[in-house]
Structure formats: C-alpha cells, structure tokens
Amino acid sequence: MENRLAEYWRKNISIVCALLVVWALVSYFCGIFFVKPLNAIHLGGYPLGFWFAQQGSEIIFVILIFIYYKLMSNLDRKYDVHE
C-alpha cells in the first residue's frame, strides 16, 4: 500500500511537471523570450509572438487545466484513491 501511494504521488508529480512545461513554454518562451523572432511569422493579422502573449497563452492555460482534470481523474481511479 505504501509503495502504491508513493508511485501514485510520483505519477502525479510527472503529470504536473509536464503540464507546467507547456505552461512556461507558451507564456514565457513564446510570449516573452522569443516574442521578437516569432513576430516575423504571421497568423492572419496577428504577429505570432504577439498572438501568444495576448490570446494564445490564455486559451492554452484553460485547456491545460481541463487536461489536468482528466488525467488526474483517471490516475485517481487507477490507484483506487478516488472519492
């Protein structure tokens, strides 16, 4: 049982880390650090870096939380710790 819980916690951490990598990528990398080179690419009338900063990050953040909800619900059931 102890081991099962430790394993559950490790999987939980890896899900959180993977999602936080995406979180940092879209906001800090696409929206701030690489905004200038990305602005050379256009998405309709949007320079791409500008789009990530003012639209894309916000939309992807919402999707990330719903993915987290889905993944964790599955994980909880698999390790039999769901409510």
Partner: peptide, 24 residues
C-alpha cells in the same frame, strides 16, 4: 500595446499554478 500582455498572462497564468499545485 504588447506590454499590456503582462496583465493578460499574469492574471490568468496564476490559475494554472493554483489548479495544479494548490487547489486540490
């Protein structure tokens, strides 16, 4: 203009941290 993004990203991105690291 672009610099206004600090508020857009800053005031939404915190919810990802909240959802993944604190709320549950």
């Amino acid at each position: 203009g672009y610099t206004g993004s600090i508020y857009l990203m800053g005031w939404t991105g915190g919810y990802v941290l909240l959802a993944l690291l604190l709320a549950p």
